Amino acid sequence: MKRHCLALDLKDDPQLIAEYENWHKSENGWPEVRKSILAAGIIEMDIYRTGNRLMMIMVTDDWYNESLKAASDAANPKVQEWEQLMWKFQQPLPWAKEGEKWVPMKQIFHL
């Protein structure tokens, strides 16, 4: 298993942030998106927020492959619909590469 930590910003608008959080309540998540996450080898996924900064922690199987997950998502119309909806609330980090949403974080400490 491997842990991945990623960051992304939300648009700094309290109403949009509240709406984003509402979409991420378990009763509002889309089953097709959850299925695609689990099928990719993601065992656990947590998203934390402070202000408008998000941090995602994923625990994946050893066989998880980010490129395969991206290709699978690109071919899944429901996942693409979800991503379009979420982009209403999200904005890239200032240092994100072109087209990059969630930016991998570098681990700098472990105890």
Rank of each mutant, 00 (worst) to 15 (best):
K106C: 08
W23Q: 08
K11N: 04
Q107M: 11
A39T: 06
A7P: 13
M86W: 00
E98G: 02
A70D: 00
M55L: 15
E81A: 15
R34M: 04
D9A: 12
L10F: 12
E100V: 04
S67F: 01
W30A: 09
A40M: 01
L54G: 10
N22G: 06
W23L: 14
L68E: 12
W23E: 13
K88Q: 14
S36R: 09
D73I: 12
K106P: 02
E66R: 01
A75H: 01
P77W: 13
Q90R: 07
D61A: 12
A96G: 09
G41T: 02
K88P: 07
P94T: 09
L8W: 00
H110S: 13
E100F: 03
I43D: 13
D61C: 09
Y48G: 01
M55D: 06
N28M: 02
L85N: 10
S67N: 02
W23G: 05
A71M: 04
K106E: 09
M1K: 05
G41F: 07
T60C: 12
P77F: 14
A40Y: 01
A18G: 04
D13H: 04
I108R: 15
E32M: 13
W30V: 11
D12R: 06
P92S: 00
W87Q: 04
N76S: 05
A71G: 03
V103M: 00
P104A: 10
K97E: 10
R53E: 10
P14E: 04
E27F: 05
E32P: 14
Q107P: 11
P104E: 11
A18D: 08
V79S: 07
W102K: 03
H110G: 09
P14N: 05
G41I: 01
M105L: 13
E81Q: 14
N65G: 04
A7S: 15
V33T: 05
L54A: 09
L93E: 11
A39D: 14
D73T: 10
